Computed example of a mutant assay.
Amino acid sequence: MALSRDGILAVDDIQIEKVPVPEWGDEAIIRGLTGDELDAFQGSIREFRPTFDGKGMEAVLIQEGMRAKLLVKCLIDENGDRLFTDQDASALGAKNGAVLDKLYDVAARLSGLSEEEKATLEGNSGASTADESSTSSLPETSSTAP
């Protein structure tokens, strides 16, 4: 039987995972982002600037605070409520980088960031970042695989 509009909209498909964080004395609960939340996150870490030659625009990745910006949207309590507001990203970003990286990996996976896109966000591709002088552009955002 084919999926219906009502059937799709009725499904609770947001994934949640508990992650042990011994450094913080307990476990964290991470919720994957909705499509709208993922779009907002991706938009918050990209900036469009003129290309080096001035003939076009390029998307530049703003890596500063990237992990914390995702995690403030994904860390939840036992009731499913967010632990942090978007304004808490800087404070959360001051925590242990290894812990944030571990939690970021889970949040990215649950939110549907593809491995290619995750590599781009982490600066492991040829895409330009705010810290580089490259004139290459980020790939266009496409639908991501779970």
Rank of each mutant, 00 (worst) to 15 (best):
M1V: 11
A2L: 09
L3N: 10
S4E: 11
S4I: 02
I8S: 03
V11W: 10
D13N: 10
I14K: 05
Q15I: 09
V19I: 15
P20N: 09
V21H: 04
P22V: 04
E23S: 10
E27Y: 13
A28Q: 12
A28T: 09
I30P: 06
I30C: 07
T34G: 14
G35E: 11
G35A: 12
E37L: 00
D39Q: 07
D39I: 11
F41A: 02
F41P: 03
G43K: 11
I45E: 00
E47Q: 13
T51Y: 05
D53G: 04
G54K: 15
A59M: 15
V60D: 01
L61H: 14
I62N: 07
I62G: 01
E64A: 11
G65Q: 12
K69W: 00
L70A: 07
V72P: 03
L75G: 01
L75D: 01
I76N: 07
D77Y: 00
D81V: 12
F84G: 04
T85R: 03
D88V: 07
A89V: 05
S90Q: 14
A91S: 14
A91K: 14
G93T: 08
A94M: 14
A94T: 11
K95A: 13
N96T: 12
K102Q: 08
K102L: 03
K102Y: 02
D105E: 12
A107S: 13
A107N: 10
S111P: 12
L113G: 03
S114V: 02
K118C: 00
A119I: 01
T120V: 15
T120H: 04
S125Y: 04
S125R: 12
G126Q: 07
E132N: 14
S133T: 12
S136F: 09
S136R: 15
L138K: 10
T141P: 02
T144R: 10
A145S: 14
A145W: 04
